[in-house]
């Protein structure tokens, strides 16, 4: 009985993960813009690979395999948003063209491309105006 439930849950997770990965692969080919491509790819692909790893964990029911699979899921869910955020920021910074059907670009003119910060609204520029370092110490007070 337990093994039948195990098989059904594992097969369902496996098919769901495969479907999500296929959607991510189609999205990365068909979307018109790098940011839309990342929107299709990063969420669907991390969820799909997480489903497949959980299917392996459910199917094996062995503590060594389950620990490896859960560690893989945690690693994937922690690193995929960081990586896609960094590559999207780099793409916006070097001026990759946006989709022509886009309505508004709210970041336009807000990025300081020389210092690679959001100008005027982040902590670094506030500290630069006050002349203090990241820990509050007074920096180049002579000027």
């Amino acid at each position: 009985m337990i093994s039948v439930i195990q098989e059904i849950v594992s097969a369902g997770l496996l098919i769901a993960g495969t479907f999500l990965l296929l959607v991510a692969a189609i999205g990365i080919v068909r979307m018109p813009d790098i940011f839309l491509r990342m929107s299709a790819a990063s969420k669907a692909s991390s969820l799909g690979a997480g489903c497949v790893l959980l299917a392996v964990a459910v199917s094996a029911a062995d503590i060594a395999i389950t620990v490896r699979a859960v560690a893989g899921v945690l690693f994937l869910f922690l690193t995929a948003p960081v990586a896609s955020h960094m590559i999207g920021r780099a793409a916006y910074m070097i001026g990759v063209p946006l989709w022509k059907g886009m309505v508004i670009d709210e970041l336009k003119g807000h990025y300081d491309t020389r210092r690679h910060t959001l100008s005027g609204i982040d902590g670094a520029s506030r500290r630069a105006q006050r002349g203090t370092g990241p820990l509050g110490e007074v920096r180049d007070a002579g000027r």
Binding site: G17, T18, L21, A24, A25, I28, A41, S42, S45, S46, G48, A49, V52, L53, G72, L76, A80, A83, S84, I87
Partner: peptide
């Protein structure tokens, strides 16, 4: 990146 994630699966 997506190809690496599918390779994991």
């Amino acid at each position: 990146d997506v190809m690496g994630t599918i390779a994991i699966a």
